[in-house]
Design a protein around this nucleic acid. Structure first.
Length: 426
RNA sequence: GUGGGCGUAGCUCAGUUGGUUAGAGCGCCAGGUUGUGGUCCUGGAGGUCGCGGGUUCGACCCCCGUCGCUCACCCCA
């Protein structure tokens, strides 16, 4: 209990040990599979970047860039930041390497934000996501969004809603912002305490405010979705139609304003209906048609999404989805005074089997107990009797009738019998 | 950054207006069954009661500080 100061995970971080880590492996594997089906390739990029990458990407005014980033200076005097989200780094890598278009990349990465932890919110959390750069085609918006949707389905999630909105491009958004500012200015006195003095700096944020005062003011005001230019409106309609043609329902959510400044046109968020906590967004993303240029690249568009692993795990638990574990298939019990099992265990493992064993020369009873708890289906017993006879006893630990049947096998035939038995009962 | 709740065994927790050697269940180890798990019985190990200070004859209990966990605001994944 008492341990030296500092010998514990930092605030807001967690260790994930087996068997819980098996859920992560399964989730990550499922995502990798679906990303590959959509022809996305894995990208691995550094977890820290020059601060400018994040500042220019996320927007200097944003809460995240200002107060939540882990910033440090290295020994060479460089100002660096720990990745707070996935997109900026991918775009930076894209600009740096000029890959062929369209560039479709998926990632799994930790993300760091200095915030007060609470349920579903940590200082180090983990995201999986994709970015697709180099095309404005609404079909790519549809691919990115549907990939997320199919992935959630593959996990077994049922109670997920897709909220969608369009932020327009710089032109129509600019026109709209004037209308919105006019409206907010006229009703300034009715805004909530926080936004009354600050609405002018970022009027869109007010739309996102959940306090009753602001909700009432903005409800009577203009919505961006009604003021999109022809091109943006057409693009948005194509995205929704594409999703609809796949049977994916998207709910128009005109107040949806996501946290990063870089979004244009399509923005979306996946919310869980079963999470009771305030952190019910399990993923989100959008199009960013100016970001590549802002980071020094050609003026090409992109779109992506990110999803939080910890939150997905919370939802999986809330929806009571059964999660596959990783258990040994065999447990080898060896009670001989000399090592009689290492070579056999090696043979089994090289044949692809997951094999557990006991250590410290414990009694047969203790080893059998360990075998039972390991979750293995079969136990192989080698005691002095088997050793002398050149045999191995194979015992079924998961026999449906309770008492497991056991048979004696010649040492040379063990592998063949084990493979047959395990295949027989998948 | 703001506010609430909580830190007692590996885990989940109990602990009577502050009173002697701090308990339970589960888990773990061993034995009952000198070669057999899952049920049952018996026994055992394991705690500077988060840490530091204070009040008191005496503190797991009261007070202060501190560290940590947790929930909410905020922000978001």
């Amino acid at each position: 209990m008492t341990r030296p100061a500092g010998v514990q995970a930092p605030v807001g971080t967690h260790d994930v040990l087996a068997p819980d880590s098996a859920r992560w492996q399964w989730l990550l594997g499922t995502f990798a599979d679906w990303a590959a089906r959509y022809d996305f390739g894995l990208i691995i990029s550094p977890m820290f970047e020059d601060l400018a990458v994040f500042h220019r990407g996320i927007g200097e005014a944003s809460e995240m860039a200002n107060k939540e980033m882990y910033v440090f200076e290295d020994r060479g005097g460089r100002r660096l930041g720990l990745r707070p989200e996935g997109t900026a780094s991918v775009v930076r890598a894209f600009v740096q390497h000029h890959p062929a278009l369209p560039f479709k990349a998926w990632y799994a990465t930790p993300a760091f934000r200095y915030e007060r932890p609470q349920k579903g919110r940590y200082r180090q959390h983990h995201q999986i996501g994709v970015e697709a750069l180099g095309t404005d085609d609404p079909a790519m918006d549809v691919e990115v969004i549907s990939l997320a949707w199919r992935f959630y389905e593959a996990l077994g999630l049922k109670r997920v809603r897709l909220l969608i909105n369009s932020m327009g491009h710089a032109g129509c958004r600019g026109d709209y912002l004037e209308l919105l500012s006019e409206h907010l200015g006229a009703h300034e006195a009715s805004l909530c305490e926080e936004h009354r003095p600050t609405w002018a700096r970022n009027p869109l944020r007010v739309l996102d405010c959940k306090r009753q005062d602001c909700v009432e003011v903005t409800a009577g005001g203009p919505m961006l979705i009604d003021h999109l230019c022809h091109e943006c409106a057409t693009h948005f309609a194509a995205v929704r139609e594409g999703l609809s043609s796949m049977g994916i329902a998207s709910e128009l959510s005109p107040r949806l304003v996501r946290g990063f400044d870089y979004y244009t046109r399509t923005t979306f968020e996946f919310v869980s209906e079963v999470l009771e906590s305030a952190q019910n967004a399990i993923g989100g993303g959008g199009r960013y048609d100016n970001l590549v240029e802002q980071l020094g690249g050609d003026p090409v568009g992109g779109i992506g999404f990110g999803s939080g692993i910890e939150r997905l795990l919370l939802v999986l638990e809330a929806e009571a989805v059964a999660l596959p574990g990783i258990q040994p298939e065999l447990f080898v019990v060896d009670t001989c005074p000399v090592d009689a099992s290492s070579a056999l265990i090696d043979e089994l493992r090289r044949a692809g089997l997951r094999v557990a064993r006991a250590y410290d020369a414990r009694s047969m009873k203790a080893q059998m107990k360990a075998a039972d708890r390991s979750g293995a289906r079969l136990a192989l017993l080698i005691g002095p009797r088997e050793l002398a006879a050149g045999e191995v006893t194979m015992r079924d630990l998961r026999g449906e009738e309770g008492a497991g049947a056991q048979v004696s096998l010649a040492r040379a035939e063990v592998l063949a019998h084990v493979l047959e038995r395990l295949k027989k009962r998948p």
